[in-house]
Computed example of a mutant assay.
Amino acid sequence: MSKLKRIISLVIFVPLGIVLIVLAVANRQSVTLALNPFRPEDSMLSVSAPFFLFLILAVLIGMAIGSAVTWWNQGRYRRQARVEAREAMKWQGQHAAATTPRTVSQLPSK
């Protein structure tokens, strides 16, 4: 299953990377991102940069948000795994104590 995941990720991420590189090369002109919808000419709330920086920044922000949401949604499974691991260690410890051979000094005296 691991090889299948690797192949699928290569099939998705390699073309995506190529598209981003092509867009970055083709869009080197400077653009202004206006953050004030009511007065776009306001220079206090605007940023000028090459367009490819905005593209790459949008992809990185999207990846970070997607990763955070995935991590948040899988929290219950990680919690369940921790609880089950503690229970397994507890049971394994009890089993090891019950099956450990006793030395002469640990045997009950008559």
Rank of each mutant, 00 (worst) to 15 (best):
S2V: 05
K3S: 13
L4G: 07
K5M: 04
R6H: 05
I7C: 01
I8F: 13
I8V: 12
S9Y: 05
S9E: 09
V11A: 15
I12S: 07
F13R: 02
P15H: 06
P15Q: 03
L16H: 06
G17C: 07
V19Y: 12
V19S: 09
L20R: 03
V22N: 08
A24C: 11
V25L: 14
A26T: 10
A26W: 10
N27I: 00
N27H: 15
R28T: 12
R28W: 07
Q29V: 01
S30P: 00
S30N: 11
S30G: 02
V31A: 02
T32N: 00
T32I: 04
N36V: 01
P37D: 09
P37M: 06
F38A: 12
F38H: 15
R39N: 14
P40G: 07
E41L: 02
E41V: 07
S43R: 08
S43A: 06
L45A: 08
L45R: 07
S46I: 00
V47M: 14
V47P: 01
S48P: 01
S48N: 04
A49N: 01
A49Y: 00
A49R: 02
F51H: 02
F51K: 07
F52D: 02
F52A: 01
F52I: 09
F52R: 02
L53I: 15
F54E: 00
L55T: 10
L55Q: 09
I56E: 08
I56S: 09
L57I: 07
L57T: 10
A58T: 15
V59R: 06
L60D: 06
I61E: 03
I61A: 12
M63T: 13
M63I: 15
M63Y: 14
M63H: 09
A64C: 06
A64Y: 08
A64V: 14
I65Y: 07
G66L: 04
S67T: 13
S67N: 12
A68E: 11
T70I: 09
T70H: 10
W71P: 00
W72Q: 08
W72A: 13
N73A: 12
Q74D: 14
Q74L: 12
Q74P: 00
Y77Q: 14
Y77N: 15
Y77L: 11
R78F: 10
R78M: 08
R79K: 14
R79G: 03
Q80W: 06
A81V: 02
V83F: 06
E84L: 11
E84S: 11
A85F: 02
R86T: 02
R86P: 00
E87V: 08
E87M: 05
A88M: 05
K90E: 15
K90N: 09
K90S: 09
W91C: 05
Q92S: 10
Q92Y: 02
G93Y: 11
G93V: 03
G93F: 03
Q94K: 14
H95K: 11
H95G: 05
H95E: 09
A96V: 04
A97L: 07
A98W: 03
A98Y: 01
A98M: 04
A98S: 06
T99L: 10
T99D: 01
P101D: 13
R102V: 14
R102T: 13
T103L: 13
T103V: 12
T103N: 11
V104I: 10
V104L: 13
S105Q: 12
S105P: 01
Q106H: 03
L107A: 11
S109W: 05
S109A: 08
K110P: 14
K110G: 15
